[in-house]
Design a protein around this nucleic acid. Structure first.
Ligand code: DCP
Ligand code: MG
Ligand code: MG
Length: 867
DNA sequence: ATCCTCCCCTAC
DNA sequence: TAAGGTAGGGGAGGAT
């Protein structure tokens, strides 16, 4: 196996002074602004943004809203014109039908394929839930049936006779009479559940009872087995029959279908859309725009399966889908909708909005580090959902709880799709997150593969955090399924009791289990969770820390990944006990100051971090390292533009702008073969270039110009590009009035006192020259007058200025800010207002310096500005 | 010493 | 076929 990428990269030419040489060749003819996914993205951001942007224009929010409205309109117009095509000749009886043939059939695979192609249908060599409309199947072994039922996601499973009869009738017949009986008969006895379901008391009675019973030994007995580490395995049983009777809209839905359908028809258990939409699914035909992704232009993939199992003729139909940037203009948008890593990567920014930092977080402890003194007193809880992505999806499928199950995009036993999460039965076979589905199938042939349901993950995460916040005010979110609680102050009673209460509540609310670790610091609490899983809790008292760690493999320590693990193993260190034998100095020499200290501390169970609120983000970015293949420069520029749009949306969604831009490129290594992973990046060099400007921006056009320039400073063949990322840092609040003074670079520079300015006068010339070049960069050659600055974004489009609203009236300008603009920007602005600015300023030449001048604390930025 | 840039590593 | 993102911490080495 050729291992991917990540060699030392020490040989890559590091310097590569950012060559400002490359002429911004194309003057961007195609600035038509497709605005891809911003349709609903713009909605959410305009509202969130209008609250920020009210200065210097008091009505800036509406200005932006209007701008966004127009862009959205434009987008919708384009979308509606682009999608329709093709008329259907009478012969194409299978138009819109996309079959996948599972197993041996009569007539043969090839014959059916030929029929489909001849009569306007399509034929899938590999199963894809997104494309396939019908599964064709004659007969299957039992094991395969079960898997099929799980994976088909509600698609009709039909006998080949359907195709033959349709051809004979010269029209598309209903598939229902041809449904595979085998499958229908094998349905779980849902009806049995439904009759019981109507008893709402049952849930509490059963689950509570079970929990109580299981918790009992722990609560009474206190400590158990090894060295006072108390651990309760699986105290909350699934109580399968009971839990599945819960009043679940999804079940109701299934019941409706079962009873109202044809007598022979039994609705297949649905994993995909129906579960996602829960109660809505019955009547919601339209994909309620995934506004979920508040900080992103992309939404989730809500599979557009028709909920009644009938022919699902998707809007676009089963048209050619491209799996790479080649030929798919919406690649970025579509890709993110299906990316699990994008989902978990962007979850945090959504959480920030849903649970705004409670601010009541009294940072009464002066030092930001735990001293060993109070560490003894602290009590930290770590909560983590068990095999989260699997658990959420199989909630309604008790028959799968005991079987090995994994979440994956593909069930192709030869495929390179990645396992996202595997349940515990599957882990017994070695199946785990990150491995290829083909390897997982090799390890465990009966592995059941189920699809993602991002919307459900989001909902469960919300419930999860609602519960946590209810029980504790100090909650640090780690991810959508994981958090730390500081319960030091809650000296009321047993932490174990609190933990079991929380776990019980999580289960009763979500029907998914969580595990909990309790200890004196975050490190040990996290490790405790690991040993509590699945569905358990574990307390590690201080006295047991040493023993707990002694045999623990170093890889189990958070912060030690495969690289550090290998390096340490070369030093014959396999366990934390062995790690302790190495001196701190030696570790720091080998791994650096901080990393060495971390290793030394962690191996002893020492962790000084405090549980805290999520900090405001320092960087915002987007990258794509899958399916990236360019045939020419134009391809790459188009892709970069889409990336810029995505990043711009996220910046605006977060209400921030940035000054530093980093473009990352994955470049196929010299002699690298085609990647092992389908559409993957394989063995690559990771390259990056960055640029800092003095005016923060979130404007697409500015981003695009900067990005183009950065892109030009790489010398490479676009055909070698396997991944692209754009990251923005040095963030500032988009609303200057809410901007922390020390973070407001431009303002601090502009508003520094005259004496300060005088003291910098020597450096000014140099700085001015730099600004000149930046301004040129920001303004460019065409339309863009200047970037978002001090809350102002104006665009004077030479060709179609009617497209964008005019800037707000002069009276709404914040003159304090305007006065301080650099000359170039001031004159640009002055032009917009027909020279009236000069007069205005002249009249109100009263002292404004005081308003915005800060004590000269902004050392860093000051240095930067005048150096 | 401290910053800055270009990386690498890690976790979810 | 398949959807290998995102963000923070931090190290090496050069510039100041
Ligand atoms: N390489 C990974 C790691 C995680 N995830 C997703 C799927 C997981 O369900 C979710 C949470 O990550 P966890 O590390 O908590 O893993 P699980 O919850 O699946 O299992 P565990 O019981 O070990 O927590 O993130 C993923 O898609 N790919
Ligand atoms: Mg988990
Ligand atoms: Mg987790």
């Amino acid at each position: 196996m050729s291992y991917d990428s990540s060699r030392s990269a020490a040989n890559t030419s590091r310097k590569s002074k950012r060559g400002l040489d490359n002429s911004n060749s194309s003057n961007n003819k195609n600035s038509k602004q497709k605005t891809l996914g911003m349709a609903w993205g713009a909605n959410s951001l305009s509202s969130s943004r209008s609250s920020f942007r009210n200065s210097p224009f008091s009505n800036f929010g509406s200005y932006m809203a209007e701008k966004n409205r127009k862009l959205q309109h434009q987008f919708e117009a384009e979308a509606s014109t682009s999608s329709h095509s093709g008329s259907s000749p009478g012969k194409l009886i299978f138009q819109g039908v996309y079959i996948f043939i599972d197993g041996f059939t009569i007539p043969s695979n090839q014959e059916l394929r030929a029929y489909m192609l001849k009569y306007g249908g399509r034929f899938a060599n590999y199963f894809s839930r997104h494309q396939v409309t019908h599964i064709i199947c004659s007969n299957l072994p039992d094991s395969k049936i079960k898997n099929l039922r799980s994976f088909s996601g509600g698609l009709p499973v039909v006998k080949p006779a359907w195709i033959l009869d349709s051809i004979a009738a010269n029209k598309l017949l209903s598939w229902i009479p041809y449904q595979l009986n085998q499958l229908a008969n094998n349905q779980p006895k849902l009806s049995a559940f439904f009759t019981l379901k109507s008893n709402p008391v049952l849930e509490n009675v059963l689950t509570d009872e079970v929990c109580q019973v299981n918790l009992d030994p722990f609560l009474k007995g206190g400590t158990t087995k090894d060295a006072c580490i108390s651990k309760v395995d699986e105290p909350i049983r699934f109580a399968e029959q009971a839990s599945e009777l819960l009043d679940d809209p999804n079940h109701q839905f299934e019941e409706l279908n079962t009873s109202s359908g044809k007598s022979s028809e039994v609705k297949m258990v649905e994993f995909g859309s129906s579960d996602a939409e829960d109660g809505n699914s019955v009547n919601s035909k339209h994909q309620s725009g995934p506004g979920l992704f508040s900080a992103s232009a992309s939404g989730y993939c809500l599979h557009n399966q028709s909920s009644d199992g009938s022919l699902s003729s998707e809007p676009g139909g089963p048209s050619n889908r491209h799996h790479s940037t080649l030929g798919d203009p919406n690649f970025v948008e579509n890709y993110f909708k299906s990316s699990r890593l994008h989902f978990i990567g962007t979850w945090r920014s959504r959480y920030r909005k849903r649970f705004p930092s409670s601010s009541s977080e009294l940072k009464c402890r002066s030092s930001d580090l735990n001293t060993s003194a109070n560490s003894d007193k602290s009590t930290i809880i770590h909560v983590d959902m068990d095999c989260f992505f699997v658990s959420v999806v199989i909630r309604n499928h008790p028959e799968l709880h005991d079987k090995p199950v994994a979440v994956c995009h593909s069930d192709n036993p030869k495929g390179t799709a990645e396992i996202s999460s595997a349940n515990y039965p599957a882990r017994n076979y070695g199946v785990k997150a990150g491995i290829f589905v083909r390897d997982a199938k090799a390890l465990c042939p009966q592995l059941v593969i189920i699809p993602y349901n991002f919307k459900a993950y989001e909902e469960v995460a919300d419930q999860f955090y609602s519960i946590l916040h209810k029980h504790c005010h100090k909650v640090q979110a780690i991810s959508c399924d994981e958090a730390f609680l500081d319960i030091t102050e809650k000296d009321m009673g047993d932490p174990d009791l609190l933990a079991s209460t929380i776990r019980k509540e999580i289960f009763n609310t979500t029907r998914c289990t969580a595990s909990v670790g309790i200890a004196g610091n975050m490190l040990m609490a996290r490790l405790a969770t690991g040993s509590a899983k699945p569905n358990g809790q574990c307390y590690i008292p201080s006295v047991s820390v040493d023993e707990f760690l002694y045999k623990l493999p170093i890889k189990a320590l958070p912060g030690i990944g495969h690289v550090l693990e290998e390096k340490l193993k070369k030093q014959n260190v396999w366990t934390c006990g062995q790690l302790r034998l190495i001196s701190k100095e030696s570790l720091q020499k080998d791994f650096g100051l901080k990393t060495g200290e971390m290793l030394w501390n962690y191996s002893r169970g020492v962790d000084n971090r405090l549980v805290g609120n999520i900090k405001e983000s320092k960087t915002i970015g987007a990258e794509v390292n899958w399916g990236v293949r360019f045939k020419d420069l134009q391809d790459s520029h188009c892709f970069l533009l889409n990336l810029c749009k995505e990043v711009s949306f996220r910046l605006q969604g977060c209400g921030v702008q940035g000054r530093m831009f980093t473009l990352k490129i994955k470049k196929r290594r010299k002699d690298a073969d085609e990647p092992v992973k389908y559409m993957g990046y394989g063995d690559c060099e990771n390259l990056s270039h960055s640029m800092t400007v003095s005016i923060a921006t979130d404007d697409v056009k500015v981003l695009q110009r900067i990005t183009k320039q950065l892109f030009g400073s790489f010398c490479l063949d676009v055909k070698d590009i396997r991944g692209v990322g754009l990251q923005v840092s040095k963030l500032e609040n988009a609303d200057p009035s809410k901007q922390a003074p020390e973070r407001n670079s431009l303002r601090s520079w502009l508003t520094s006192t005259t004496t300060e300015k005088a003291s910098r006068i020597d450096s000014m010339a140099k700085e001015r020259a730099r600004i000149d070049s930046e301004v040129k960069n920001l303004i460019g050659t065409s339309g863009q007058l200047f970037s978002d600055h001090a809350g102002f974004s104006a665009q004077v489009d030479s060709n179609s200025s009617s497209d964008i609203s005019a800037p707000p009236p002069l009276s709404h300008l914040d003159m304090g800010v305007v006065k301080c603009l650099p000359a170039e920007l001031f004159s640009e602005l002055n032009e917009i207002y027909g020279g009236k600015l000069t007069d205005f300023i002249a009249k109100s030449s009263v002292a404004s310096e005081n308003i915005y001048s800060y004590p000269s604390t902004h050392s860093a930025e000051g240095q930067r500005a005048c150096s």
